Simulated scan of single mutants.
Amino acid sequence: MKHKIIDRLHEEEGFISGEKLSEEFGLSRTAIWKHVNALREDGYEIESVTRRGYRLISSPDIINYDEIKGELTASVIGKKLIYFQSIGSTNDKAKELAAKAEEGTVIVAEEQTSGKGRLGRSWSSPGRKGIYASIILKPDMEPFNAAKLTLLGAASVALALEDCGIESQIKWPNDIIIGGKKVAGILTEMSCELGIVNYIILGIGINVNQSVEELPPELVDKATSLRIAEGKAIKRKHLLAQVLNRLDELYVQLKVTGDIEQALDICRERSAVIGKDIIVVQGRKQRPGHAVSINHDGELMVRFDEGLEQVISGEVSIRTEYGYV
Results as ranks from 00 to 15, higher is better:
K2P: 04
L9Y: 06
H10I: 14
E13A: 11
G14E: 15
G14N: 15
S17C: 08
E19G: 15
K20Q: 13
K20C: 12
T30E: 13
A31Y: 11
W33H: 13
N37L: 14
L39G: 04
L39K: 08
G43W: 10
E45Y: 06
I46F: 12
I46R: 05
T50Y: 15
R51V: 11
G53V: 09
L56K: 07
S59C: 12
D61T: 07
N64E: 15
T73M: 11
S75A: 14
G78K: 04
L81E: 01
L81K: 01
I82W: 02
G88E: 10
S89W: 07
D92I: 04
K93L: 08
A94V: 05
E96N: 05
A99Q: 10
A99M: 05
A101Q: 00
E103C: 08
E103G: 13
G104K: 02
T105G: 02
V106E: 07
I107P: 04
A109I: 10
E110F: 12
Q112G: 06
T113C: 09
T113V: 10
S114Y: 04
G115D: 10
G120W: 05
S122K: 15
G127A: 13
G127H: 12
I131F: 00
I131T: 01
A133N: 02
I136S: 03
P139E: 10
K148S: 12
L152A: 13
L152D: 09
A155S: 14
A158D: 14
A158F: 03
L161G: 00
L161C: 08
S168G: 07
I170H: 03
P173M: 01
D175L: 00
I177A: 03
G179K: 15
G179A: 09
G179D: 14
K182I: 03
A184K: 01
I186H: 05
E189V: 08
M190P: 05
N198G: 06
I204S: 09
G205E: 03
I206Q: 00
N209L: 10
P217F: 13
E218A: 07
E218R: 01
L219P: 01
T224R: 03
T224Y: 08
I228V: 06
K232Q: 08
I234Q: 01
R236F: 14
K237H: 14
L239A: 05
A241D: 00
V243G: 01
L244Q: 07
V252F: 01
Q253A: 15
K255H: 04
V256D: 10
D259Q: 04
Q262V: 12
L264V: 13
D265G: 15
A272E: 02
L300D: 00
M301P: 00
D305C: 11
G307I: 09
E309Y: 11
Q310M: 14
V311L: 13
S317D: 11
E321I: 10
E321Q: 12
Y322V: 09
Y322M: 11
Y322N: 10
